[in-house]
Design a binder for these strands. Structure first.
Lengths: 155, 155
DNA sequence: GGTGAAAGGATAAAATG
DNA sequence: CATTTTATCCTTTCACC
């Protein structure tokens, strides 16, 4: 992991579909050198994947909420996390310090769906209570913060 | 936006580097048909970009926190959001309902850095108080939840 | 909308410095 | 480690349906 690797990672974070030839031009290496480096970054687990980013509103997921999950006394964290993972509406799940066991990010189409999802969350064994914060607007999300990045916008 | 588009989106969410030929095989179209559809999805703003996903711990960002931003009485939300965007440690920023104006996700290397970042956050004009929740572990993050997905893993 | 063909480019896997 | 090379595959455009 040298400066070149970090440059390549930064480039792939802003444009995950950049070709190896492009990356090579950006960092001053041949395409095959970049290819080999990226392969190593992937197999060493530094790069875990590549995702298209979609505007949630345009795919029918206009409602986002952050939900704190309060555990019951008998809760098994791993079981709760596994149950949370089974709900497709739960996009992210963080185990946290504090009264809550987890904070999850939920994306659904409507507030009705949100209500249904919250009912499902509260029915999970080990969940005592939920504390929901509705997201009014996403100002920015998932910015690459590691190295130098001029713009938060992608592609 | 038909079922084919949704399939293509799902495929690109799980593997943002899938080739058009790959996508074509997955959805039963020719590569050029997929190419045209993806182009339209991009220019219509449905697909906003492609990002490599990196293991934060392996790039020196082992500490994650969720920070609620309490506004002062005179706060201008847009100015606060702009100031938050200027801090590279702030990866995501959500305007929320409730006492807090924003919830942000912060990623830093150490708890020392977290403390420094919190000081900077509280110094922002319009920020009265912060409420920090330290993330102990990320169980999963950024899963594609839209359509059918067998595995949350990418690539 | 889709297909298929063809030129130009990119990838992947060698051998080499 | 990077480069160059090579065969193979992919991208991109275009004529056509």
């Amino acid at each position: 992991m040298d400066a070149l690797d970090r440059q390549i990672i930064a480039a792939l974070r802003t444009n995950g579909r950049a070709t190896y030839a492009d990356l090579g031009r950006q960092v001053g290496l041949s395409a095959s050198a970049v290819h080999e480096r990226v392969g190593k970054l992937e197999s060493s687990g530094v790069i875990t994947g590549y995702h298209a980013v979609v505007d949630p509103r345009l795919v029918g997921l206009g409602v986002t909420a952050l939900v704190g999950i309060h555990p019951s006394d008998t809760a098994d964290d791993d079981e709760v996390a596994a149950a949370l993972a089974r709900l497709p509406e739960v996009e992210s799940c963080y185990a946290v310090a504090g009264d809550e066991a987890f904070v999850v990010k939920v994306r659904v189409a409507t507030v009705d769906d949100l209500e249904r999802t919250l009912v499902r969350l509260r029915r999970i064994d080990g969940v005592a209570r939920t504390n929901t914060t509705v997201v009014l607007s996403t100002r920015f999300e998932g910015r690459p913060n590691s190295p130098e990045e001029p713009a938060p916008r992608a592609e």
